[in-house]
Design a protein around this nucleic acid. Structure first.
Lengths: 164, 164
DNA sequence: TATTGTTATACTCTATAACTATA
DNA sequence: TATAGTTATAGAGTATAACAATA
């Protein structure tokens, strides 16, 4: 392969001395245009920021929300089970749970069957809080729908269902 | 809203003393199933890992690739312009460019028009290297296509085109 | 020997704030 | 005053390794 393979000719730049472009517009992405990963990254940045903003008052971030939701729907899971299911490192989950336990949303209960592991449960306060978080997360989801369209959101969910 | 709103009944767990589930399968995601952001996050983790693996030999990560590609296609851009176009913090771009400059892929040239700013260019070595990176990135993109299907990848790019 | 939870380390990335030199 | 680049800091997130208690 030569150095020119797949190279796009440099875009015409404002010549020296000419008026400089007023904005960071018109800058070509070249090969990035064809990369799904680039589009997905930019979309994820937008979607995370909207989630964090929408749930800003309750100070819940996406990862915390996912942990609370899975524990709420599957009480008694071990830390390993939650970590594997959500694709989180078990070492990281320790700190996430420390925080959620301090805030009285989650409790670790020593398992009698396997004394190495903890059974995870929501507290009563955690149940109430999670219901509120789900309402706000639904609001966030409506923002997503407004941004990309109802049909596109549904197609996206269908296309990526295998990764959840 | 009550605490029970939108709550899914807890899944049936293996009763105490019964055989425990062998794998972290069958764990319900509850409300996460309907969140585009969750699916996107999981997909992005997969896609980043494949990119990093596919370009592992050349030690180029997605962000570095995006910076090199934009500079290659738009020689002379300032750091601010690159940062804005790619949605990277300008403070972060400083370190990215430090690394790419050390590796002789990029050079910062003091602008004569505005002595505060640097015009960014690829070195000859950078041009050659980027061509190789693009070939590997195309290989990564074929992995994506194999994973989600040709049609789905194209739909994804179409749906998310507005975020690039 | 292997696994669970934990602690620790390193690096990537996001988000700010403040500083300098220029404009 | 405002902007470009830089330095610094803090927290989130990823990726490892190693350790104690337990299986």
């Amino acid at each position: 392969m030569t150095a020119t393979a797949a190279r796009t000719p440099p875009r015409k730049r404002a010549s020296n001395g000419a008026a400089r472009r007023s904005e960071a517009d018109e800058i070509g992405l070249d090969a990035l245009v064809g990369h799904a990963g680039y589009a997905v990254r930019r979309f994820q940045i937008w979607i995370f920021q909207d989630f964090v903003r929408t749930l800003g008052d309750v100070e819940i971030r996406p990862t915390q929300y996912s942990v609370l939701t899975v524990i709420g729907a599957n009480p008694g899971l071990s830390q390993m089970a939650v970590a594997k299911r959500l694709g989180i490192e078990r070492a990281r989950l320790v700190h996430l749970l420390d925080s959620l336990e301090q805030r009285k949303y989650v409790k670790r209960i020593k398992s009698k069957e396997d004394r190495r592991s903890h059974a995870l449960h929501l507290t009563a306060q955690g149940e109430t809080a999670l219901a509120k978080f789900k309402g706000l997360a639904a609001e966030h989801e409506r923002n997503v729908e407004a941004k990309i369209g109802k049909e596109n959101r549904e197609q996206l969910l269908r296309i990526l269902a295998g990764f959840t």
